[in-house]
Every structure is written in C-alpha cells, then in structure tokens.
Design a protein around this nucleic acid. Structure first.
Lengths: 346, 346
DNA sequence: TGTTAGCACTCTGTTTCCTTGAGTGCTAAA
DNA sequence: TTTAGCACTCAAGGAAACAGAGTGCTAACA
C-alpha cells in the first residue's frame, strides 16, 4: 500500500513527465514549492516506488519515468473529477450550435474539434447501423445489364450499389421485386436486411416472379457490406509531432494500421461502459505499444451507436483528454438522440 | 551541346544513382565493363557536366549526384521508349479481367496495383463529373423537416444530400418540384446542374408552386459539391520508406498535404497531353520539393476524365514508372469507354 | 526512527581529436 | 587527347575527455 507521501510524489512525477517528456529526478521534485522534504528523502521514496513497479529508470543513473503500471494507477486513482476549461466548453458548444443536418458532417466536425483541442489524433466509429432501419429501396436502371440499388435508412443514411442484371430478368420483374422489398423490408434493421430478405421474401418471390433463380443470384450479392461502420479521423498526423515518433519506421507502422479499417474497428469497441483508457501494451496492436487510447461511447435513445477515441502517447494528458471526450460524447448523444426523435415520431 | 561520351556517362551516372541512392564517383563508373576509358578521363567529363549544371557534388570531394536539370535532361532525352516486363503486363491485365461494375472500385484497384508494382505512392483523380449527366432525381422524406435528395448519374454514380424543408413547404409541393426537375434536368451534366436549375426552372416553378421563395431557398444549398472530383490513394505510406524521408518533419508536411484535397487536386491537373513528369522544384508544393510526380490522363470517348499519378523521390525509376502509368492509363481508358458505351446506347 | 547532508559513483551526451577512405583537381608524361 | 600519379579535401566513424544530471549509501542529526 502506498503512503500519503508516496502518492503525492508519484502524482508530481507523472504530471511533470507528461508535461516535459523528460525523466524526472529527485532534485526536480524537491524544487517544487509544494514539496517540503529534501531530495534525499525523495530518493528513498522513489526507490520504493520503483520496487513496487510504478516507475522505472531509463538507465542506472537516470531520473525516473512512469511505468505502465504507474500510468494505470494514475488514471485509476490520482485523477480529480473531470473539469473542462471554459474555452473548451465554448469550442465544443459552438460546434453543435450550427444545425448540421447530416450525421456524417456532425461526426466529421467532432473528430476535427477533438484533434484540434488536444493535438492528438481522434478516431470516431460511425453510428452503428445496428439500429437504423430501412425506409425505402429503389432500383434505377442504368443500362441493359446494370442498375443502381439505393437504400435509404430512417437516419437519412444512403447506401448504393451497382448490380448486374441477368439478361433473362425483365424490367417488370425488377419492379415487382422492388415493390415486394418495400412492403416486406420496411423498418427492418439494415444489419439484418440480408437474412430477412432471404428468409421472408423467398416464398413471396417464388409466387410472383418467373425467373426466381436468376433473380435470387442477382440479389445474392446485395446488402453485404451494409453493416460495416465507418471510421473517421481527425488530425491524423498530429501524433507524429510527439517525440515518441521520431523514428519513421514507427510512423509507417502506425499509419499503415490506420489504413486497415478492420483493425481500428476492433480497437474502438470498448469493453466497459463509460470512459475507458487503454495504456501501452494493453493495446494489442504492435504499432500502438507506446500509445494510449481513450474511448467513450455515444448513444441514441440509450442504445450504443459508436465510439469516440483519442490516440496519444502513453505520456498523454489523461485528465484533460478524458474530460473532453466525456463531454463531447454527451453532447453528441443528446444531439443525435434529438435528431432521431424527430425522425421517429413522424 | 553534349558529346556522345558525355551523354553516355550522364546516363550511367543517373541510372546508378537511381539504383543506389549514393553519390557516384569516377571510379565506380570506370569499373563498369561497358566503359573503356579511365577514371581520370571520366573525372574530366564529370567536371564539364557539372559546369553545365547536369550534376552536382554534395561536398567538395564527393562523388556526383544528378541535379534537377540532369533529371530533366534524362527524362527528356535519355529514356528509351516505354517497355513493360511481362509480369507487369500480366498484373495489370488481371486487374481488368474481373468485371467490376463500379467505377469507384476499378479506380481503387488501379491505385492499389500501381503502388504495389512501384513501391511509390499512387494518386488518382476520380472521373470528372464534367461529362456525366443526370439520370434521375429523387427526394425521400425523413421527417417533418428533413429529406434526402438523391441524384443518380448516367455513369451509375450516386450523390445524396440531406436537406431541411421549411415548414411552409408542403409535401405535394416537393413532389411537384421533383417532377419538374426530372423533366427539365434529365441529361444535364452534373456540373452545370445548379446553374441550369436556377435559370431554366425559375419560371416553371413560379407558375406551379405557391411558396416559390421558400422552395427556392431550400434548393439554394443543393447541388453545390457535385463537381468536386474525388482523390484516391494507393500505398500512402510507401514513400516514407525512401531515404529522402528519414526526417519525420518532412513526413508530417507531406501527409498533411495529402489531407488537403484542393492542393492535391491542383497538382494532378496536368498541363500537357500525355505523360507528364514534374521534377523536384517544378512542383509548387513545399512538401514535395524532393519528389517527382508523373501524371497521365485517362479518357472516356476521347474526353479527359481524370488522371493517374505516381509520387516518388526525385531519384525515382522514371522509365519503369512512366511505362507503367501509360499502360494503365490506356487500359483504364478503354475499360471505361466500353462501360460508358454500354450505358449510353441503351 | 525518520530525515537529511555529503560524497563517491554511474551513465549519457557532447565535444574534440584522429584516422580512414572515397573522391577530386591538377600536372606532366605518353 | 588520354592517362598515371599525386596532393588535397571532406565526411564518417571511433576513441578519449569532460560536463552534468542523477543515484545510492553512509553517517550525522532531531
């Protein structure tokens, strides 16, 4: 168990290291005016903290640096409740002040402002299609063999896909199919569109359509990708300014990871509720071993829709970042919920 | 004017430097078996070539490195006609072999293969909407105040935008507007949609619609962004592997430039026909002073639709890159033209 | 018994000096 | 005109020296 004084010293050390990115020595700490005891005393305490694994040396005669265990302890026990500066609050509110109609825009703007306020990289997982439902399907012919299928969701989201029409399928067949779809699939969640279509429509289609088999193979490629959430970034290159990324090889690794949506996708699914912090090796990805990720969820009517994240060095400003993220998540939740209500009760 | 031998030496020097990224000395050149004269002779020639500005020293006793003027000369005069290896041809053809329906996919795949074959970064400017024409407009209501506007172009491209509907505008008004649009705007190029709508439809609308003014302001925000071409990338991080980008600050600058579509957009509009090479400072952008860009256009039925580009260090493999780019541009042109024909004559 | 001053020791980073090697330019001979 | 030879230059790399920040330990102190 840590003594009062050890807590105090650990806190000062981590705060200092976060600010300066330089190993902190006993003298640096003792020079602070809140500190009344001598550097020798601090040295003893530091040795104990090191034994317990909260801090480490970079070499035998260096100052101390927080270990991952140290950061973990700091985040879990040493942070005061979230507070935001008035400026930050103002910046965020000004974002939601202008009524943006498109969800996509709102999210893009959120990513932008997060990265600007923190100088880290922000990542946002787009709203889960999970709960958005189909409003309407349309098929618009382009040529003899091709047509565009357009899905409109109740959230205003539009998906489209070009398909090839087998020669044996006639225009009137397609019209019939679309009509049946709009009857049967309306208000079905996008994510289960494919399975519902296959189950529920099969019998109806068979009855009304001649070339059932051809139509079926045509529909087979449809609605496949609709459940992929989109990943948005803000300040992708911000994190390169951190001294942790002096080495171009690390930069390459990280940026390559950014390009792989599926990896990012996994990282952004938080395991707990609320604001979650993953520090250093707690992230599985090799490219992010020296990074921390803070995630928070946003909701629509109580249902989780996606998440916001900030990616910084393990030495990141946890307190401010967490406050900011929590605040923005709340604002996003209420903005989106409001929008959604106006759609739903219509 | 350069002598036969000077040409010969310059060619060897640049080829060598492109391969090794190391300054080339007189002995290195003389050791080549095609070279019959001594290193002393070469030293004299190198001095002359330096006086003429084709090569430079990195310091007073170093080997020589091509200058930008040297590269320019090399590209303009020393390259043999484009030839591709069988492997490259095969790789590219296999790309176009599988019938991809969506233009977007074709282009993304092209970007990918270009970057994989060259290990540089490829950039593709999406097909100009310039010539694509409106096939159909649809408005689908989402709530009392909002609706999605969907444009389908004859190329299969779909644009959508959420709009707010003023309370005074009724549903039947909107239906009327859409009908008029589909009558009057069909086959209008997307790029001139806005202006055509404002001119041609004004009178008709006034006649049929009560709240002409409200409808008008509603339409005012519409169709604004449709003429922005999209920029696609392949191997964004490839170029970071080049020794020219050891410095993270340069990396940051370059990647930031990538994020700014308008800048990239300008770079990719070639001034000449055919394959264009811009070397080092010939690029205006600060971030690309040590890079070269090779661009080529692709066409649909003879009309320029967009361009392909490869971004590498000034020390890039010009010959292979240019061959590859030209070849892919041709293939893309014919593939797209074919697709377009099948739409048009329908 | 906890705290502190003092001191020897350790390690990093920087500077300085030296050496090596690749390369040049010039001169004089072939 | 070409080439061999030679003096000279510069960058890169390594060894040595030094300064500075920091530690751990001991002994004295309150």
């Amino acid at each position: 168990m840590l003594t009062e004084r050890q807590l105090f010293i650990l806190q000062i050390l981590i705060d200092d290291y976060i600010r300066t990115a330089e190993a902190v020595g006993s003298r640096t700490i003792s020079k602070r005016k809140e500190v009344t005891f001598s550097s020798a005393t601090i040295r003893n305490e530091l040795a104990d903290l090191e034994d317990m694994g909260y801090i480490e040396k970079t070499h035998s005669s260096s100052g101390r640096v927080p270990s991952e265990k140290g950061y973990r302890f700091y985040v879990d026990n040493l942070l005061s409740p979230p507070v935001l500066s008035n400026n930050d609050v103002k910046d965020i509110h000004s974002l939601f002040a202008e009524k943006m109609v498109e969800v996509e825009k709102v999210i893009q703007q959120s990513a932008k402002i997060l990265s600007e306020l923190t100088q880290y990289t922000s990542i946002i997982l787009g709203p889960e299609v999970f709960e958005t439902k189909l409003r309407q399907v349309q098929i618009i012919p382009l040529s003899k063999e091709t047509a565009v299928v357009i899905l409109v969701a109740d959230s205003g989201h539009v998906e489209n896909q070009t398909i090839t029409i087998p020669p044996s399928v006639s225009m009137s067949d397609i019209e019939k199919v679309v009509n049946i779809m709009n009857e049967r699939l309306k208000d079905i969640p996008l994510v289960s569109l494919k399975s519902t279509m296959m189950q529920e429509m099969a019998t109806v289609l068979k009855k009304h359509i001649e070339n059932y088999n051809q139509v079926n193979t045509m529909l087979d490629n449809l609605f496949l990708y609709t459940n992929a959430e989109k990943v948005y970034y803000g300040g992708k290159t911000n994190i390169l300014a951190q001294p942790e990324f002096k080495d171009v090889e690390k930069v390459r690794l990280l940026l390559n990871t950014f390009e792989q949506d599926d990896l990012m996708y996994n990282i952004l699914r938080p395991e707990k509720k609320g604001i979650e912090v993953r520090i250093g090796q707690e992230n599985d990805l090799e490219a992010m071993q020296e990074c921390s990720i803070i995630t928070a969820d946003y909701f629509i009517e109580g249902k989780r829709m996606g998440s916001l994240a900030l990616l910084g060095p393990t030495r990141m400003e946890y307190h401010r970042s967490m406050s900011l993220l929590g605040f923005l998540a709340n604002d996003l939740t209420s903005t989106l919920t409001e929008r959604y209500r106006s759609f739903k009760h219509w």
